[in-house]
Every structure is written in structure tokens, then in C-alpha cells.
């Protein structure tokens, strides 16, 4: 039973290992990509604020590098579609980012937009929040799925461990009961026979025990009695 429990546990743990790998492959990669996109977005927002202040060179450098980072992360997420409707989420990010991107790609420095905080608040920041919200949705989708998967894995790990625990307890109980039967059926009659043989002497020519079974122990008792008769 312990061997069976061990085999079941090994098979279950092998499955579990595969599931953990799948969990990392499926959801965690996309969550990392989403985090990367959010960081890039925050950097782009800083870049836009620099452009708004008229710092063309610094702003452009930050924007170009953040854009590059965002697009790489978006491509990675696009290649790792594992959840139902995840492609729609990706497409939504792509569309909202294109709108956002088109707004800051046009010149801001030396135009009427430079220093216009109202334009930033009402137009640019609104687009920024839309992209951020779309990325967050993708992250929540994968986090929820990851949580569900992790809960399932917790269940699976329990199912892998439980047969082993139950087997150990069952084996302990079994050994106690077996010990009782062996003592009752073999050791106790043998002890009785030892005591009975000790009592055989000049005044007592018969070995008496309480063995009622018709097995080898009874046969041994009979043979010892015959031996006593032959010797006396």
C-alpha cells in the first residue's frame, strides 16, 4: 500500500512539476510583459512632461527608449496568448497605444502646446490613462488565471501528499492489529506451552495448555505429551 501511495505521489508530483512550469510559461511571462509596459508608459509620461517644459532633447531620448521598451513588451505579450479572449485585450492595448503614440510623436516644443497644462490634462493624460487601463486589464486577466491555477495546484499537491499520509497511518494501524493477531495466535500459545513444560515433573506427567485450535501448535502439544509418556 505504501509502494502504491509512493507511486501515486511520484506521478502526481511529476504532473505538478509540469503544471508549475506551464503556470510560469503561460501567465507569469505576460504579467512581466505588462509590468514592463506600465514602466515604459510612466517613462513616456515623464518624457512628455519634459517636452511640455521645452526640453526637446532629454524628452525625446526618454520617449524613444520607453517606446522601444513598450513595443518589445507588447510583442512578447502578443506571442504568449494563453487565456481565452486574451488576443482582444492585446489588440485593445495596441489600438489605445497607437492613439497615445500619435499624440506625443508630433512636435510639442515650440508649438502652442508647449507649457499648455490644460492640453496635457484633457487630451494627453486621458490617452495615457486609457493605455494604462488596457495594460492593467491584461495583467488582471493573467493574475486571476494564475491565482486559479495556483489554487488548483494547491489541491493537486494535497492529492499527491494525502495518499502517502493516509498510507502511513493505515500501515501503523495495520501493524498494531497484525501484532495483536500474531500475539494472540502464535506467541501467547507458545508462552503457554513453555510454562506448561516447566510444570512437568515427577508428580505431573501431562502438559496442559488452553490451546483449542486444531493447528500445528496443538500437534506440537500432543507430540510433547507423547514424548513425556515415552520418557517416563
Amino acid at each position: 500500500m505504501l509502494i502504491l501511495a509512493g507511486t501515486v505521489s511520484i506521478i502526481e508530483f511529476m504532473k505538478l512539476s509540469k503544471d508549475v512550469n506551464a503556470l510560469i510559461e503561460d501567465n507569469y511571462k505576460t504579467i512581466l510583459a505588462a509590468k514592463s509596459m506600465l514602466e515604459a508608459l510612466e517613462r513616456e509620461d515623464s518624457g512628455i512632461l519634459l517636452l511640455l517644459l521645452g526640453q526637446w532633447d532629454d524628452g525625446r531620448i526618454i520617449l524613444d527608449s520607453a517606446d522601444n521598451k513598450f513595443m518589445t513588451a507588447l510583442d512578447n505579450a502578443g506571442k504568449n496568448i494563453t487565456e481565452p479572449r486574451e488576443d482582444i485585450y492585446i489588440e485593445k492595448i495596441r489600438e489605445s497605444y497607437q492613439i497615445y503614440h500619435s499624440k506625443w510623436q508630433r512636435p510639442i516644443v515650440d508649438t502652442d502646446k508647449q507649457g499648455d497644462i490644460n492640453w496635457y490634462e484633457q487630451d494627453m493624460h486621458k490617452s495615457f490613462l486609457e493605455v494604462k487601463s488596457a495594460v492593467n486589464d491584461l495583467m488582471i486577466l493573467n493574475q486571476t488565471s494564475m491565482y486559479k491555477e495556483a489554487s488548483l495546484l494547491k489541491e493537486k499537491s494535497r492529492r499527491a501528499i494525502m495518499p502517502g499520509i493516509v498510507s502511513i497511518v493505515a500501515a501503523l494501524v495495520f501493524s498494531i492489529i497484525l501484532n495483536y493477531f500474531i500475539t494472540k495466535n502464535f506467541i501467547s500459545p507458545l508462552n503457554q506451552m513453555v510454562d506448561a513444560v516447566r510444570e512437568v515433573g515427577p508428580g505431573n506427567k501431562v502438559m496442559k495448555t488452553d490451546i483449542s485450535s486444531e493447528d500445528e501448535l496443538k500437534l506440537l502439544e500432543n507430540e510433547i505429551n507423547k514424548l513425556i509418556n515415552r520418557l517416563s
Binding site: 501515486v8 502526481e12 492529492r159 495518499p163 493516509v166 493505515a170 495495520f174 493477531f181 494472540k184
Partner: peptide
């Protein structure tokens, strides 16, 4: 279903513990 192993295992325990007292 996922309950195959728990049920099979419980059944096995019942059979082992059920049969062996009959030997003695």
C-alpha cells in the same frame, strides 16, 4: 474526475482491513 484516486485508495484500505481479520 479528480476523485478517482481518493475513492480507489479508500476502497483499497477497506478491502485490506476488511479481509485480513478473516484469515485469523
Amino acid at each position: 474526475e479528480s476523485s478517482v484516486i481518493p475513492l480507489a485508495y479508500s476502497m483499497l484500505i477497506c478491502i485490506i482491513f476488511g479481509l485480513f481479520p478473516m484469515i485469523f
